[in-house]
Design a protein around this nucleic acid. Sequence first.
DNA 1: CATGAATGAGCGTTCATTCAT
DNA 2: AATGAATGAACGCTCATTCAT
Lengths: 191, 191, 191, 191
Amino acid sequence: MTKKHDIIETATRLFAYQGFKGTTTRQIIVESGTSDPLLYYHFKSKDDLYIQIVEAAFNKYFSRLESLPQETSAEFDKIEGLIQLNFELVQEMPEEIHLVIVTCPPRLNDPRHICTKNIKKQRKFLSSYLSDCLKRGRSSGEFVKVPISKTVSLIIGMINGMLRLRSLGLDKLQGMDKTAVEFCRRSLLRT
Amino acid sequence: MTKKHDIIETATRLFAYQGFKGTTTRQIIVESGTSDPLLYYHFKSKDDLYIQIVEAAFNKYFSRLESLPQETSAEFDKIEGLIQLNFELVQEMPEEIHLVIVTCPPRLNDPRHICTKNIKKQRKFLSSYLSDCLKRGRSSGEFVKVPISKTVSLIIGMINGMLRLRSLGLDKLQGMDKTAVEFCRRSLLRT
Amino acid sequence: MTKKHDIIETATRLFAYQGFKGTTTRQIIVESGTSDPLLYYHFKSKDDLYIQIVEAAFNKYFSRLESLPQETSAEFDKIEGLIQLNFELVQEMPEEIHLVIVTCPPRLNDPRHICTKNIKKQRKFLSSYLSDCLKRGRSSGEFVKVPISKTVSLIIGMINGMLRLRSLGLDKLQGMDKTAVEFCRRSLLRT
Amino acid sequence: MTKKHDIIETATRLFAYQGFKGTTTRQIIVESGTSDPLLYYHFKSKDDLYIQIVEAAFNKYFSRLESLPQETSAEFDKIEGLIQLNFELVQEMPEEIHLVIVTCPPRLNDPRHICTKNIKKQRKFLSSYLSDCLKRGRSSGEFVKVPISKTVSLIIGMINGMLRLRSLGLDKLQGMDKTAVEFCRRSLLRT
DNA sequence: CATGAATGAGCGTTCATTCAT
DNA sequence: AATGAATGAACGCTCATTCAT
């Protein structure tokens, strides 16, 4: 059981920084201190190992997303919460996020791949969450008049982009979450 | 000469959608209708082929960046121009951009790799361009008071994220460039 | 374990009669009834396989050389023993000797190659053994006055040449060892 | 014509020091400053190039052998002449001799290969030359009673071995020809 | 003679994976 | 749960060789 965990841990790290094809089972085995047959005792295949890791990562991510508030005094609190949550997650599970960023893109052509499914699920969740938030805020007069779906897409893109830069080590500034929140606040809130 | 071009074209597409390690030389050869030795006649190695493609893609990208205006009536025009240029580029060279998004991340650990060098070069250019723009706009009173470097990082992240979503086919909405421009305008311009 | 031995045996034979470059790993694999990955499971590379074979051959040879007598009633007995030992060895380990004769020469340019090291070691051993023997025999009056180092070189060359012809199948006469011994005896012994 | 010569010269050197299989046409072409098609304009194949070189080398060797005296005042003069001739040849055509030593052995299994044919021809010549010489010298009382064919084989082996050591750079002593001559003289001549 | 472009076949090697123990 | 030995298929790459110009 402990060895299985070692394999997962090692594989996560290697997949994240070298990609799926760029990581050999040999490397996983050596660096996790196990043996070939043991890997295949615990996992059906290299692909199976990868899938289990990705699924676990997304589940962890989704369970946090689901803890986002559905009712808030001000609608913008939701946006603020969403931005902050994502910045927290990059720090909490950096390897898992790196893994998704690096290894999912080449798989998005296959609509039945776990990566595709989960990324669509994520997008769907964020879309409906933000969409609902913007609609309410707009009709209550809290927000300025913005095109809903496009603004949703923009916010998702913005979060996505900032997370990516952080994860890849291309942006190491502190307090970027606050900056992002203020940037959005100025753009969205009625004055 | 035409065959060399065939190889480059095929390799660009395959690298972009399957990753570097996920693409075999055999596949490039078959799909480009050439032969193994010919690939190695024109390119020193699979890596060399990849590098030449990446370098060409970045050069194309940089030559467009350098055409951005240095002097504008309003500072925000620069931001607008930058956003629009990037959206144009995703349409002009979708495979090259996909290639960079998919294949560069696992290489960023190596500071001497072309991917790393070019991405740093890109970041440097955008940073100084936006930094300069924000400083001027802020002191002229065109922009609200924002923290320069963090806002720069945010705008880069935003552009980056939106381009990524478009390139991966996760965002197909029309007019996103305008939405992004307006979003920034509201957030940055003094009213 | 038995398969590893099969590989070594087959490789020895093939290297000996076709040379190193003239033997492909495929050939070794097919003729030894194994598989590609198994060869690389037991040996790091084709070169490693070759090196292990050469080293084993030389060790076998040296262990026999070391059993040569250091003290004899007549000094010429040593020369006789040396000649006979070498003729015995061509019969005992014909493939190993063939291997050395065929595959070592192109490697002698590299002073750090095992072939070079072992051949120098062999030469050093024979030189000191014969040199010592000739000196003693000359001063005791058993031998005629001959130039030591040149005569040593000549005897080594003679043994070397006869072994080579035997090994290459260019000389199949029986009793050549005796003939060589008598030839040397007449030339060296005082009458 | 000059380029053809360049190719031959380069190929001789490379074949001699790296073996036939160890030398690529590419290497010959680059080091001789020519081009692929030119090599195949002048020679039918890599094998053809090799064969022409070997044949030329043997012809050069044989033409010298044939200049050996058939009638001498003392029979031993022939042996002395033969030994000296061979030592001269190692200095005159070191690369050609190296070539034969290094590249012929793996081909001796094929009885129709030029190497085999020429080496047999060489052996036949030396055998009959020495055999005749020993017979005459023995019956004239110049030589002691030695077994003819075995002694012939021994002398050939001795010459062969000394030449090989010189050619491979394992023996660099000056005056070895004289030493060999004296060694044989003491062994063969009646006192 | 000279050159750039092209190839079928095969090279040494490694991949993910499985077997018997 | 763990290991040493084994494998089919494919990897990136290079071989000697040929073509049209």
